[in-house]
Amino acid sequence: MPRDGVFDQAGEAYAEEGQVMLDGPDGVAVSLTPGAAEQTARALLRAASDARRQLDGRELES
C-alpha cells in the first residue's frame, strides 16, 4: 500500500441471500441491495474513467 493510503488492490464482491457484499481493500465491508450495488458499480466506473483522464492529463503536462 502506498503511504497516502490509495490502494492498487481491488475489493471483492459476493452475492449472498439477496445482498451484495463488498469487501476490502482496507476497512471496506459493506452490504448493498442489488440496486444500490448496480448504481455503485456505475459510479465507480465513471469515477475510474475520470481519474484515468486526470492521470493522462498530468502526464501530458509533465
Binding site: Y14, E17, Q19, A29, S31
Partner: peptide, 11 residues
C-alpha cells in the same frame, strides 16, 4: 460488533 449485516457475518 464488526459493522456488518448478519448475512455478511454468516458468509
Amino acid at each position: 460488533a464488526c459493522g456488518m449485516t448478519s448475512v455478511h457475518i454468516n458468509r
